[in-house]
Amino acid sequence: MTKVRWNESGTRRIGFWRSENAAPAPTGIVVITDDISADKALRITQRGSSLLWRGDFQNARQLMRALDRRLEKRASRAPQATDPGEVFFDNRKARAQRAAILGKILIPLEPDYTVRLRRAPDARDACAHAYGQPVDQPADETSDAVGEETLVSLPELLGVISAYEWHRTGIEVGALGARIHPAYGVFAPTRDEYIDLVADAPRPQGIDRPVVWDIGTGTGVLASVLARRGAREVVATDINPRAVQCARDNVTRLGLADRVTVVEADLWPYDDDEDGDSGRADVVVCNPPWIPGRPTSALEQGIYDPDSDVLHRFLSGLAEHLTPQGEGWLILSDLAEHLGLRTRNDLLDRIDAAGLTVVGTSETSPRHSRAADGADPLHAARSKERTILWRVGARPST
């Protein structure tokens, strides 16, 4: 963690900065309390300074909401684009700017993650879940500044607390008849329509108990569904260590650890052996990020994929990892097509260039709240969105 310094009541203070999104350490820290107005707070943040909150915790949340309303109102006055792609990028830019301002509200954590503010929640378990168990930070023997606190942005702390509640209570998955418990920093399966597509997809012809790979497993929800469907063996991969542990915990909780193996890997679970054989599966499932773009947080890695890199690498390597009758199941929202960020022909050309052929498709409409929100700037595109399961197989050689 990065050290930060500020002056408070005539005392030089030193602390640590924590940001899971790798936001830069705050500078020009100004200590504020409940008597600050939202307009004054906004002026301070727009000058580049950060606000260290020493008042009532619930009032800090009220201040954040007030700043958000002001920023949203200003954004609404800006000229509005009409091209769907431009609307998307303008909206994303505005959201990033708002997030940068709101992230300048700082909350101090004690070494044991206690928040010593009036009406503050007990965030110790939530922070331990997200950050790991607290450890003593080394003292700075060369400094005369006073300090032990760790500073985090208020939006991040609220996200940590919310994520821990999701983790504790879990998310009911109809296709499983059970709950999946997401971990902090792991994409939660709240959009369950894609799960139903996988639960209902027909097995490859002639294969009753397939060997399945689940690429980018996240919480392990699809691996668990396929194991419950009768897969002989499921190997689930993810590049995110938190996701690997989360998936292992979920399959163990569901009593599926004897059939589901979770490994940390970038896409494929096995390296090539001496004969160049990298292993094969009867079904290879992948639900990659569906929007070409750069993620700004760990959670956004489940949504945004720069230059569609994960999608393209999955398709290009799929044929060599399938058994002769095997299928790849690609689950992909077509929202990027409605935003003008990718065309259907682009996807079909990639499938063809990878030596694959489309065996069949199934699709469903999204059930999330934004799909019906007419006030959403992207409503025109979201209202047309479909989530599609593409069943593809290796094209027979001629």
Rank of each mutant, 00 (worst) to 15 (best):
E233F: 02
G340C: 07
T142P: 05
S162V: 03
V221C: 00
A126E: 04
L158G: 11
G293H: 02
W268D: 10
L117W: 07
D266N: 15
D273G: 00
D136R: 09
V4N: 03
A336D: 10
S49Y: 11
A75Q: 13
G326Q: 08
A81Q: 08
P24Q: 06
W53K: 06
V225C: 04
G159Q: 05
D275R: 14
A381C: 09
E20N: 14
R70G: 00
A281F: 09
K40E: 14
G220N: 03
R232W: 07
N287C: 07
E300D: 05
A60Q: 00
R124A: 04
S224D: 08
L176W: 05
I171M: 15
V251M: 06
A281N: 09
A247C: 12
Q80W: 11
A96D: 14
G28M: 07
Y131S: 03
T237H: 10
P396N: 05
E156L: 14
T296S: 13
K40H: 13
T217Y: 05
A96K: 13
W390R: 04
T237Q: 09
W17D: 08
W166M: 09
V235N: 02
V244H: 03
L154W: 13
V235A: 02
T190Q: 08
R228H: 02
S383L: 10
A100S: 00
V285Q: 15
L67Q: 09
G360I: 00
M64T: 07
E165L: 11
S224A: 15
G355A: 02
L335Y: 11
W290C: 02
W17Q: 07
P79E: 06
K73N: 15
N240T: 02
G279E: 06
E20T: 14
G170K: 14
V173Q: 00
D68H: 11
C127K: 07
R229A: 10
D122H: 04
Q205S: 12
K384A: 07
I239W: 13
Q205R: 13
N7I: 08
E264W: 00
G255Y: 09
V198P: 02
R382I: 08
T357G: 06
F89L: 14
A372N: 12
G355P: 03
V392Y: 02
Q133P: 01
E233C: 05
G340M: 01
Q245I: 07
R12F: 02
W268P: 03
I239V: 15
V234M: 06
G147P: 11
Q46G: 01
I215C: 09
R92I: 05
T323P: 01
D56I: 04
L63K: 03
R191C: 02
D112M: 12
T217G: 01
L256A: 06
P155G: 11
L67H: 12
V30A: 11
L299I: 15
V87T: 08
D140P: 03
P366C: 11
V212Q: 09
S224Q: 05
L151R: 12
G374A: 13
R382H: 10
D192G: 06
I29T: 08
T82I: 04
I388T: 15
R382P: 02
T45I: 02
R124D: 01
D200M: 02
R259Q: 14
R242A: 12
R391W: 06
A100N: 03
I44L: 13
R294S: 04
S49E: 15
A139V: 00
I14P: 01
P202L: 10
A100C: 00
A99S: 06
D34F: 05
V146I: 10
S162A: 13
